[in-house]
Design a binder for these strands. Structure first.
Lengths: 321, 321
DNA sequence: GTACGTGCAAAGACTTTGCAATGGC
DNA sequence: GCCATTGCAAAGTCTTTGCACGTAC
């Protein structure tokens, strides 16, 4: 990935240099490019090798020094993976995440999980530790090493993009679950007015779902290998399920009779609660593309909520006149 | 702690040497003693310094080599805490645990948490990693460092003992919660027979609770500073609460009327379920004193279950004759 | 007596520091 | 022209290896 968009990072770096009375040089820019142009957890030696391909005269000391600067300005994050080497990963516009490390082959898998974070936070707070970016490193042995075979080489993807993909998948999962709800409610509802409302909302829901699916596809087309990248975001399906309302209270003797006003109310409730959930969920992450996906999804739901609200108002005034 | 009981570890080590055609020497024994005589996460340099106090002629290379052997035979565990040094911690009869590390002052806190483990396990399994001892290291900044003050020096305790203490505390917590249940059930129950049963079981429960409390006190007396050591085992109080039966089903119009047979049945159910829970819970840990505490507690509950069962049988045959 | 163990020194791996020459600004 | 930067070499830190002598078995 040589022609990557690294304008923002370069700008950030140059700004950092300017502010600190440091000078921008060809070497520093080359190192920045080498670092940003490669995913994964690169050691100084790794980056040195990359830079050397472009200019044999660069010294490894400069790489050490430049990586310190990149860390200082928030473009890189220094991590130790237990093999004695200091490694660096992309930080700018990449979510803070955790690592699973195979102690045999040193393979590293990155992930985020709000659920894990919650439990961990609880424990850490008991000891008076602040939430200041606690990073979890899980050491274990991977499937391949256990079976004594080598890991298939996978193209490495930008963590930020993988996160965006998973956020879209999560949103899509919510959308399809909700679509199912609206459809089944429409099918079961014996009240024609209510049935019509659910059917209409389901149609709208479907259109929005298609929109999300298209966005996901576009993303996967842009970044090749993205669909094969392992999951990065672990979301709790059960949490999403909790957002779906139960029709128990409205079911009498196995029969569902929901008038249009009640159906609209239910749909509005659902959209609003889901929007709130996703907004809060998004806040747990650093500023990243994935977070933006979640925020946009929350907004989309609020807009849907507003549109249902308008429909309800229109119906009210129609019946009043 | 110079006069510590390290017979078992020494035996294990010598056995390992014998099996591998290695020789036991004064130096190796001294290093073993220095390692076991100090809690915490010692570096090679730390242990070297300790050994040197006894014999100035020992070389640091021997310490490196001996610690490799101690790791190989399961007495020590090698850990990296992110400061670039290889550190060693006690392993034999110490539960596998996780670390919270302050990235500023390098303070280390150890803990276990079945709940955290569950969530983590779930994630790790998704990636095909086996449960082969995944270790979590959480990096953060401790309260003291945030407030720019130094950490009060605490006597370090044997992790195994702290775990035993926490297991006892957990058992005690279960016991007192259950005592409360039996007492309140006795007080509320309008049936004299059932009331008597609950009162009797509560008395037995109290005796067992006192026994546990005595055990905890004895442990704390043996190991000074143990009561001040931070929590090591994080158990979920809510899990224990789930074991307590609800009397809702037996409450009619706010009134509780439980005959002796039903009261006995409830008590037996409670003891049995709690025994099962603690037996399973104990299995999650390596062979340690803490695990034994949990197992003994499970057995104690089974015995209590059996004794209640006998009472029930006696009552039955009495009423039959 | 054999073979491993020990402690010295030396080397190796990774990272930092000192310094004279170089090159941004 | 000033002063940070660079790349070399050198040093520093942690750990391992080589080797001659010592010692457990």
């Amino acid at each position: 990935m040589p022609g990557k968009n690294i304008h923002q990072e370069r700008e950030l770096f140059h700004e950092y240099l300017r502010r600190n009375g440091l000078k921008k040089t060809r070497q520093k820019d080359m190192i920045l490019e080498a670092f940003l142009g490669n995913e994964g957890h690169l050691s100084v030696e790794d980056i040195y090798a990359l830079v050397k391909k472009k200019d044999r005269k660069v010294g490894i000391v400069t790489v050490f020094r430049t990586l310190k600067s990149l860390t200082a300005c928030g473009i890189a994050r220094e991590i130790g993976l237990g093999d004695g080497l200091t490694r660096f990963e992309h930080r700018y516009h990449h979510p803070l995440h955790h690592h699973i490390i195979c102690t045999r082959c040193n393979k590293v898998i990155e992930f985020v999980s709000p659920e894990l974070e919650r439990v961990q936070q609880e424990i850490v707070l008991k000891y008076g530790f602040q939430q200041a970016n606690p990073r979890i490193q899980v050491y274990g042995v991977c499937q391949e090493c256990l079976e004594q075979r080598s890991t298939p080489e996978r193209p490495k993807c930008d963590t930020g993009k993988v996160f965006a993909r998973d956020a879209l998948r999560m949103a899509l999962s919510m959308r399809s679950r909700r679509l199912e709800f609206y459809r089944s409610a429409a099918a079961r509802n014996l009240d024609p007015g209510g049935r019509e409302v659910f059917a209409k909302v389901a149609l709208e829901e479907e259109a929005l779902a298609l929109q999300l699916a298209a966005e996901l596809e576009a993303l996967q087309r842009r970044e090749k290998g993205l669909d094969e990248a392992p999951a990065f975001l672990h979301f709790d399906e059960a949490e999403l399920e909790k957002l779906i309302p139960s029709l128990q209270a409205d079911t009498v003797a196995g029969e569902l009779r929901l008038g249009a006003p009640r159906a609209l109310e239910l749909a509005m409730q659902l959209e609003e609660r889901a929007a709130g959930f996703f907004r809060q969920y998004a806040e747990k992450f650093d500023e990243t593309e994935g977070r933006q996906v979640l925020e946009r999804f929350a907004e989309q739901q609020l807009r849907h909520h507003a549109s249902i609200h308008d429909t309800a108002q229109a119906m009210k005034s129609a019946s009043a006149s």
